[in-house]
Design a protein around this nucleic acid. Structure first.
Lengths: 185, 185
DNA sequence: GAGCGCATGTAAAGGGTTACATGATTCT
DNA sequence: AGAATCATGTAACCCTTTACATGCGCTC
């Protein structure tokens, strides 16, 4: 149930509408915590019901901006400081790795090349984003500093995966005992 | 819907019961793809209905072992080779990083210390597991080699996160423009 | 005035976790 | 005999995604 706190955290920076928040969850935040608009709108309604946020203003096209309340701020801080961290890792690319032995060497090499390319590109994109931050393009307010730290984690994560995929490509050759035996069903 | 293929992949190694598979998903596999027994039993039933696996034997205490079928093997290989990889990353620890600026310096330091400890321990555990594999304690059959590769990814991932947490601890000090202003609500 | 982007929502279905429920076998 | 472990399953709930649905406002 972290989307709730993700929204609360974003609203701690200032008022925003469901639409605004959806944009956030489609860029930087979305890389580590994906969320689509139906869930966001629903959760905002619940947060308002619980008094953690409130409607700040109504704008054109039915726009509804929310503002975090005092209890909302208390709640996000409580969550950050007291709630145990959920370290769950769920990575399809790593699940697949357990079954690499079912692929032909050609398939595996092609796969790992694609994976390495994907992860390198992801790392690179974050790196250029971080560089812009470091150049001061987004100011140096505390939220911006935190985004910089979060991005650093992404850079290191994707970097590690890219290197892993390259390592896996040539390092341990998968040699069936009876060559080809596993490939025929 | 990758649990389906996770089960198929495990059954490609040999027959197993829902209970056996649950154990698998609580150790190595579980680190990258958690799954609980209710989902596993349900999915096994569906896989059997679809003819991708079949009951191999009935044992004591109602034990029901499944075996992968020809079409099951075709399906897992098709998935590995053709189905696009889902790169979704969802990491609560990284979501929290976006909101570090809402924590007091003391809270943040304590938090990062705990995180670093957690990730180091996770990496270390996988490292010793990998060392056992490298000593040949589990043989050198193709599935074992793949497990080794998967574990290597986990080691690098957790290692990167551990280093990140250490880096974040002392690197960029979060200095509010008006000291303390953001901490009071 | 056509098209795009802004803006919000509902409904249905899928995927996963937790709690509940039960019983057999093995080990001490 | 009692405890631990093996073993399977159902029910309720939660979270998330995808598809459907609608309409306003701005720009060309």
């Amino acid at each position: 149930m972290s989307l709730r706190h993700g929204l609360l955290g974003l609203l701690a920076e200032g008022p925003a509408s469901g639409y605004d928040l959806t944009q956030h969850f489609q860029t930087a935040l979305g890389t580590v915590w994906p969320a689509q608009h139906p869930k966001i709108y629903a959760e905002l309604t619940r947060l308002a019901e619980d008094g953690l946020i409130e409607v700040e203003s109504l704008g054109p096209r039915g726009r509804k901006a929310y503002r975090i309340t005092g209890s909302g701020l208390v709640e996000i801080r409580r969550w950050l400081a007291e709630e145990p961290v959920d370290h769950t890792l769920r990575q399809e690319p790593l699940l697949r790795a357990f079954f690499f032995w079912l692929m032909t060497p050609e398939q595996l090499d092609a796969h790992l090349r694609q994976e390495a390319a994907f992860f390198s590109a992801a790392a690179e994109q974050l790196r250029s984003f971080a560089a812009a931050k470091d150049r001061g393009e987004f100011g140096s307010a505390p939220p911006t500093q935190s985004v910089r730290i979060a991005i650093e984690a992404g850079i290191r994560l994707y970097g590690a995966l890219a290197e892993w995929a390259e390592w896996a490509r040539d390092a341990p050759p998968v040699l069936p005992e009876r060559p080809g035996a596993e490939i025929i069903d």
